[in-house]
Simulated scan of single mutants.
Amino acid sequence: MTQESASSGADAPASLSSMPEVVDHVAVARLYGEPLFAMPQDLYIPPDALEVFLEAFEGPLDLLLYLIRKQNFNILDIPMLSVTKQYLVYVEQIRKRNLELAAEYLLMAAMLIEIKSRMLLPPKKTADGQEAEDPRAELVRRLIEYEQIKLAAARLNAIPQHGRDFLKAEVYMEQALQPRFPDVNADDLREAWRDILKRAKLVQHHKITREELSVREHMSIVLKKLQGRRFVGFEELFDPRSGTPVLVVTFIALLELAKETLIEITQAEAFAPIYVRLAYSTT
């Protein structure tokens, strides 16, 4: 239903003129933060500005159901005259202001008038001699179905919904206090070895010599370098000035020591420096 507040555009100037222009040098109003010491004379209030909608309906069936339930009518025996009159009063009010909105309601009004006119005529029997169906039967079925769907929708809406009624709690849990270093794979060792070879080529000597190198001897040299030290950088175990043969033997010695689990080769994260330490040293 709609009602208009008891006020109009014609009453606005009379009420505004009675207000004082300045009260003890205090502004009578503020507009966009600026004080107004006098009411504007050309103030216009649209006639529809004071209109109040007391009830909002979702369609003609919603309005009909409201009229029936409000007056405790039996939905299976609707008093068509009373309901139709009340319905037309509401439709007439919205038709004056919103014809597009009233179109759907006007269609239902025509249906109500048709049902009322059919009820005034004598009932006709069907071809098989049975009584004709009540003209209100189809309308009653539609109203009952609509009410069931509306109640079901209200029950679904009452169920707590994520994002509207509650939010999921999110808690961060640290799985491990000790950092876990990634394992060093063959590709990482190969890339580190290539970098050492590149550096060795920059400082290599062009002196041809024949030298017999022992892997076991260089294994001992590596172990001595690791003695008493917690971690040693992978590059620190190689001396580029000693030449490529020595570098190769040293690298093989490292692999042999790792194979025999005498040393450990670790890396903090991907692409991080590689470190070597004794397998039995404390961490």
Score class of each variant (00 low, 15 high):
residue 249 V to F: 04
residue 17 S to R: 13
residue 191 E to C: 05
residue 158 A to E: 14
residue 12 A to W: 00
residue 215 V to H: 02
residue 262 L to Q: 10
residue 145 E to R: 07
residue 191 E to N: 08
residue 56 A to E: 15
residue 190 R to A: 13
residue 9 G to H: 07
residue 157 N to I: 03
residue 233 G to C: 13
residue 12 A to P: 00
residue 91 V to R: 03
residue 86 Q to I: 08
residue 261 T to N: 14
residue 194 R to A: 10
residue 125 K to G: 11
residue 259 K to I: 02
residue 82 S to I: 15
residue 79 P to N: 12
residue 11 D to H: 03
residue 168 K to E: 15
residue 35 P to C: 02
residue 165 D to H: 00
residue 273 P to R: 11
residue 109 A to M: 05
residue 192 A to R: 05
residue 100 E to G: 11
residue 40 P to I: 00
residue 15 S to Q: 13
residue 258 A to N: 02
residue 5 S to R: 10
residue 112 L to S: 05
residue 140 V to D: 07
residue 234 F to Q: 06
residue 225 K to A: 12
residue 149 I to R: 15
residue 39 M to K: 06
residue 177 L to F: 05
residue 161 Q to V: 05
residue 243 G to T: 03
residue 282 T to H: 10
residue 237 L to D: 01
residue 101 L to C: 05
residue 193 W to K: 05
residue 86 Q to K: 13
residue 282 T to M: 14
residue 51 E to H: 08
residue 278 L to I: 08
residue 105 Y to N: 00
residue 201 K to M: 15
residue 229 R to C: 08
residue 145 E to I: 11
residue 13 P to F: 00
residue 191 E to H: 09
residue 109 A to R: 02
residue 117 S to W: 12
residue 30 R to Y: 13
residue 108 M to L: 04
residue 80 M to Q: 05
residue 131 E to D: 09
residue 72 N to F: 06
residue 15 S to D: 14
residue 55 E to I: 08
residue 166 F to K: 01
residue 29 A to C: 01
residue 11 D to A: 05
residue 208 I to F: 08
residue 107 L to Q: 12
residue 165 D to L: 06
residue 188 D to W: 10
residue 176 A to C: 09
residue 116 K to T: 12
residue 62 D to A: 02
residue 94 I to D: 06
residue 74 N to E: 12
residue 261 T to A: 15
residue 91 V to T: 02
residue 10 A to Y: 05
residue 225 K to M: 12
residue 216 R to P: 04
residue 207 K to D: 15
residue 244 T to C: 13
residue 151 L to W: 10
residue 217 E to D: 14
residue 221 I to S: 15
residue 50 L to D: 01
residue 203 V to F: 01
residue 240 P to Y: 06
residue 222 V to I: 12
residue 275 Y to E: 04
residue 130 Q to R: 07
residue 23 V to G: 09
residue 229 R to N: 11
residue 13 P to V: 01
residue 127 A to S: 14
residue 215 V to A: 09
residue 203 V to K: 06
residue 208 I to Y: 11
residue 132 A to S: 13
residue 222 V to L: 12
